[in-house]
Design a protein around this nucleic acid. Structure first.
Length: 452
DNA sequence: CGACTTTGACCTGCGC
DNA sequence: GCGCAGGTCAAAGTCG
C-alpha cells in the first residue's frame, strides 16, 4: 500500500539520476518490505486457525499420552490378574495336594489299625461266638476277644459261673497298636489296649445279671461308653500319647483348645501335683491332657496329650494338635526300624533301642506312663538336648521299662530348629530361615503355646 | 446360674 | 489277696 503510493510519486518525479536513484530506492524498498514481511512472519507466528490446529494437535497428543497410560495400566492390571490366576491355581494345587496327603495319611493309619485288628481277630476267630457277633450288631460294638486270666475270672465270678463272659462287650477300642508285649507276662489284649475308661468295666453285666434296671449312673456310663466307643473307632490312635516338655511359668500352656480340669493327683516321686484336663470344645471329644511341672526344673512344664480331637479346631490349635496327632500316628504306625518323619517342619525321630526293641524310658521320672501308652516326647526345652530323654534320671532312679515305642523329638538349639523361644507365656518354635530346603518346611512350623 | 475348680472317694491295673 | 499308684468321678465350692 505504501509502496504503491511512492511509486506513483516517483514516476511522476522525472530526471535520469532521479530515476536511477528512485529506481534503486524502489528496489531497496521492496527488499526492505520483504524483510519486514519475513520479520512479521516470525514475530506473528500463528493465525487462529493455526492456534486451534496446534491446540488440537496438543490435545490429541495429550489424549494419546493418557490413552497410552491407560493402556499400560490395563496391561499391568492384566498382568496382575494373570498373576492372581496363577496364584489361585497354585493354591488350588496346594490344597489338592494337602487333601490327598491327608487322605493317604488316614488310609495308612486305618490300614495299620485294620492290619493289627485282623491279626488279633485271626487269633480269636476260633473262639468268637455267634452271640458276640449279635451283640456287636445290636450295639455297634466290637466283639471282644474271649477273656483270659484275671478279667475272665473276675467276670466269671461276678456272673457266678455263667458263661456270660463270651457276651461281654468290648467297650474299648479294639485298636491293637501295641508294639510289643511286656516281658514274659501273659497280658491280655485289654491290658495292652486298655479300655478307655472305667466305664468299660464289668459293672453293666453285673447290673444286668442282677435283673435290675440300670441306674442313671450306669446309663450315663453306658452313654459315655457308646460315645467313647464311637470315638475310638473313628480314632484308633486314641491311646497314643504325646508328651511336650516346654519351659513355661504359667500353669498351663495355651494350645488353642478349651480344657476342663477334672482331677489332680500328687504323683509318686514328684511333689508337684499332676492336673488332669479334658477337652471341652466338643462334649464327646476324647482328648485329655495331663499337666505337671518337672520336679528337677520347675520352669519346665510337662504336658501329655492323649487322643485325637473329633471336632474342628480353632486355627491356633491346629498346629499343635496336628503335630501331636501326627507324632502319635507316627509312633503307632512305627515299624521295627528306626525312621524319621517331618511334622510341620519338625523332625520327629522314631527309634528302637537296639536289641531291646521299643523299650520306653520316660524323660522325666516324675511323669509316668501306662505300659499301654506309647508315648512321643516333644522336648521343647533347649537346656540339654542329649539329656532330654535318657540323661535326666537321678542316679538311683530305675526308669520304668514299658513295652512301648520310644520316640525322641528334640528341639534343641543345636538342631536346625533353633528358634525355640518363650516369652510372655507364649512359646514358639520354628525353623530358622534356611537358605535351602528348610524354607519349604517353614509354612506351618510355628506353634504358639501361650497363656490361657 | 452356668461353667469351672477343688478335692476326697472310688475304680482299676499291677507287683509282690 | 493285699497294697500301692495312676486315673477318674462327682459333690461341693468358687467365680464371673
Amino acid at each position: 500500500m505504501e509502496g504503491g503510493a511512492l511509486g506513483r510519486s516517483g514516476d511522476h518525479g522525472g530526471g535520469v539520476y532521479d530515476e536511477k536513484r528512485s529506481q534503486s530506492s524502489v528496489d531497496g524498498d521492496r527488499e526492505s518490505r520483504r524483510e519486514e514481511k519475513a520479520v512479521d512472519k516470525v514475530a506473528n507466528p500463528v493465525t487462529t486457525a493455526e492456534i486451534s490446529m496446534v491446540e488440537t494437535v496438543a490435545t490429541a497428543l495429550n489424549k494419546n499420552e493418557k490413552v497410552d497410560e491407560l493402556q499400560s495400566t490395563i496391561a499391568e492390571m492384566d498382568e496382575v490378574r494373570e498373576e492372581n490366576q496363577r496364584l489361585k491355581m497354585s493354591l488350588d494345587r496346594l490344597l489338592k495336594d494337602y487333601r490327598s496327603l491327608q487322605m493317604q495319611f488316614q488310609e495308612v493309619v486305618q490300614q495299620e489299625t485294620k492290619r493289627s485288628a485282623d491279626k488279633e481277630n485271626n487269633n480269636n476267630d476260633r473262639e468268637l461266638t455267634e452271640e458276640s457277633e449279635l451283640v456287636c450288631l445290636s450295639l455297634g460294638r466290637v466283639p471282644c476277644k474271649p477273656k483270659t486270666d484275671d478279667q475272665t475270672s473276675r467276670v466269671s465270678k461276678q456272673l457266678k459261673g455263667e458263661e456270660f463272659n463270651k457276651e461281654e462287650l468290648s467297650l474299648g477300642l479294639d485298636c491293637k497298636f501295641e508294639t510289643t508285649k511286656s516281658g514274659g507276662s501273659a497280658r491280655t489284649t485289654h491290658e495292652t489296649l486298655p479300655i478307655p475308661s472305667p466305664t468299660n468295666s464289668c459293672e453293666v453285666p453285673k447290673e444286668e445279671a442282677g435283673e435290675t434296671w440300670p441306674t442313671s449312673k450306669v446309663l450315663k456310663k453306658m452313654r459315655d461308653s457308646n460315645v467313647e466307643d464311637e470315638v475310638s473307632q473313628q480314632n484308633p490312635a486314641k491311646k497314643a500319647r504325646v508328651c511336650i516338655r516346654a519351659r513355661c511359668d504359667t500353669p498351663t500352656i495355651n494350645d488353642g483348645c478349651q480344657w476342663r480340669k477334672y482331677g489332680q493327683k500328687i504323683a509318686k516321686g514328684n511333689p508337684c501335683p499332676r492336673a488332669y484336663y479334658r477337652c471341652t470344645v466338643a462334649p464327646s471329644c476324647p482328648v485329655r491332657k495331663q499337666v505337671q511341672r518337672c520336679f528337677e526344673d520347675m520352669s519346665i512344664l510337662i504336658t501329655t496329650y492323649e487322643g485325637t480331637h473329633n471336632h474342628p479346631l480353632p486355627l491356633s490349635a491346629t498346629a499343635i494338635a496336628s503335630t501331636t496327632s501326627a507324632a502319635a500316628s507316627m509312633l503307632l504306625s512305627g515299624s521295627s526300624t528306626s525312621r524319621s518323619t517331618d511334622v510341620h517342619g519338625l523332625n520327629l525321630y522314631l527309634s528302637d533301642n537296639g536289641s531291646k526293641p521299643k523299650q520306653f524310658y520316660l524323660s522325666n521320672p516324675a511323669l509316668s506312663s501306662s505300659p499301654s501308652h506309647p508315648t512321643v516326647t516333644l522336648d521343647l526345652t533347649n537346656s540339654n538336648p542329649a539329656s532330654s530323654h535318657f540323661g535326666r534320671f537321678p542316679a538311683n532312679y530305675n526308669p520304668p521299662r514299658y513295652s512301648s515305642s520310644s520316640t525322641s523329638v528334640n528341639f534343641s538349639t543345636s538342631s536346625q530348629f533353633n528358634a525355640v523361644s518363650w516369652s510372655n507365656g507364649f512359646l514358639s518354635y520354628g525353623a530358622q530361615p534356611q537358605p535351602q530346603s528348610y524354607n519349604n518346611r517353614n509354612v506351618l512350623s510355628n506353634i504358639n503355646l501361650g497363656r490361657l
